[in-house]
Every structure is written in C-alpha cells, then in structure tokens.
C-alpha cells in the first residue's frame, strides 16, 4: 500500500497517481448526472476499470461502460472485453461504426480504410442517444502534444468539438463539470500518467490484459520502419515481403491502424524493463494514423475524437 508510511508522509508515485484518479472519478459521480466510461479492452481502459473499482466498491459503478466498436478489432480483445465486464457485473453498451455506416452517417472512401477516425461519429451518436453529460476516457497527456494541453475535465460543445484556445481554466483540484443540455465533458483521470506508470500499475495490481500485449510470433510486413500486421483486412500487397516476427502491441485499436513493435517481452515485468529503456514513443511507433501529419491528433480532437 502506502510506502514509507509513518516514517515520512509521502505517497509513492503510483499511490499518488491512483489517488488523484480516484478523486477525479468520484468528482464525475458527484457532479455529473449521466456519465459513461469508455472501455475498449485496451490497457489504459483496463487501468480505468481498476481505478473505478477502487473508487466505488462495494457499490456499483455510477455509470455504464461504453465501447465504440469499429468492427475492425482483434477477436481476443473483444473476448477479453466481454469476460472482464462479466466479472465486474457492470453494464456494457456497445455501439458500432458498422451501424453508423448502415445509417449513412459514416461514409467510407474505401471499404477497408481505417475506421479509427470514424469512431468520433459513432461516439457522438451514442452520447446523443443516451444523453451522456460526461464520458470518461483513458487518454494520457504524454501520448501526444495536443493532449499535453488538454484539461482533465475537457469541455465539448453541442457538436462534440474541442476548442484548444477556449478551454476552461483548471485550478487546484477543483473541477467544473457543468454543461448545458447537448454539451458534454470528456474526463481523463489518468492524464498525468506516463506509459511506464501504466505498466508499473498493471504489475502492482496484477491486472490481466489481452494476450496481444505480450510477445508472440506474427506475420508482418515492414513499411517505413513500422511493422504492419498481415490480416484479412490488411493483406500483404504485391511486392511486399511477409515475415514472421516476435512482436507485441503497445496500443490496441482498429486493426488497420495499430502496429506492433518487435519484442521478446512476454511478461509485465519484461515489458516494464523494455519500456524504461524504450527509444520510440508509444504513438510514434505504433499508430499509423498519427503519422499522417505532425498535427493529426489536434485536428481529429477538434472534430470530437477522443
């Protein structure tokens, strides 16, 4: 638990981060009428669920879990998601990009293109359908420079847009979650965590993760220094060489835009050791969608992306 307890009144860095996140989750519960927690089966949202347990048990979570399904997921992740939800006994809402495509609110340029960006449309539709006034997400400020400037309680207008120049000042630990009807907050309880903090917390809490996070052999092609997994959605193109390589995923999202890294780390401890000496940043190495332009994330966030 608390290290150095008694001797000196200092919380270890993980205890400090955990405590801050629990405080944020309870503020959402205290201030918002109809929040939801975004759960994808990825490691950051798995951490969020543990934090929610610490914040609200023995009670139920004061919010449902929401997954925006791109339809391009690894089956292990979906199986993991459903098992975790069943263990927790909480309510899961799934809304899929597929349905938005059928409705015509998402229009694809090509049938197999990345649906990562289109999640924003489905998410905003779900927010409207259920009237959510807050969505809790696992984004972190160390992921990307637009995120570095985002508030913990981040206001979205009636179109779901983030306006970086017009954010509410956020002082002390006093959060202002007030919104008018149709507007909502995005809330990021692990804003101040780094990738290493997340892995150290996963280790300390003994959290289970989808197997994709650990080293395994996989067919890939190399492209501009990034490994692209070979899947039915992303087959090898002509002239590309398919290799079987030991890899693990550092982030998990839409199949078409999430790349693994070469690794032999098969346990959380080995991943921590690797992360501590890692030479590539998480998004740089693994997100094909953030490489499009230096400002890609900022532009997507303004449209309502997480």
């Amino acid at each position: 638990m608390t290290t150095i307890f008694g001797a000196s009144h200092v919380l270890s860095h993980l205890d400090w981060l955990e405590s801050e996140a629990i405080h944020i989750l309870r503020e959402v519960a205290g201030q918002c009428e109809n929040p939801a927690l975004l759960f994808s089966g990825g490691k950051d949202s798995i951490v969020l669920l543990r934090l929610a347990e610490k914040a609200f048990r023995p009670g139920r979570f004061p919010f449902p879990l929401l997954h925006i399904d791109t339809g391009h997921n690894y089956p292990e992740v979906i199986a993991f998601r459903d098992r975790r939800v069943a263990e927790l006994g909480e309510r899961l809402i799934v809304r899929s990009v597929e349905d938005s495509i059928a409705r015509g609110t998402v229009v694809l340029k090509s049938p197999n293109e990345s649906r990562n960006r289109h999640q924003s449309v489905t998410l905003l539709e779900a927010i409207e359908e259920f009237g959510f006034d807050a969505c809790i997400g696992g984004a972190r400020r160390d992921e990307e420079k637009a995120r570095a400037k985002e508030r913990i309680f981040s206001f979205r207008d009636a179109f779901g847009q983030w306006d970086p120049k017009n954010q509410r000042p956020e002082l002390w630990n006093l959060y202002n979650a007030r919104v008018h009807k149709g507007e909502h907050m995005r809330v990021f309880p692990i804003s101040n965590w780094t990738e290493l903090d997340v892995w150290q917390y996963i280790a300390r809490e003994g959290l289970e993760l989808p197997s994709l996070y650990f080293a395994h052999p996989r067919a890939i092609v190399r492209k501009n220094g990034v490994l692209r997994p070979v899947t039915p959605l992303t087959p090898a193109r002509e002239g590309e060489t398919v290799e079987i390589v030991n890899v693990r995923f550092r982030t998990i999202g839409d199949i078409t835009c999430t790349a693994p890294v070469e690794s032999t780390a098969a346990t959380v401890e080995e991943i921590i050791a690797e992360t501590a000496t890692m030479m590539l940043s998480e998004r740089g190495a693994t997100r094909l969608d953030d490489q499009t332009s230096e400002a890609a994330m900022e532009l997507r966030k303004k449209e309502g992306y997480f």
Binding site: A148, K149, P164, E298
Partner: peptide, 28 residues
C-alpha cells in the same frame, strides 16, 4: 511547441504539462 495555432504565431497559448522521471521521483 504545441498546437498549430501556436506554431503559426510563435507563442504559447495555454498551460502544457510535461513529465519526466529520475528513477527516484516523478516530475510534473
């Protein structure tokens, strides 16, 4: 250097948070 608007104008418009760790302490 953060947002597009800042790079265009060569200024910082908002508080940004950065992280580093020395092994004994985490800094924000």
């Amino acid at each position: 250097d953060g947002l597009i608007a800042e790079r265009e104008q060569g200024i910082t418009i908002d508080v940004a948070y950065r992280y580093f760790s020395t092994g004994t302490r985490k800094y924000i």
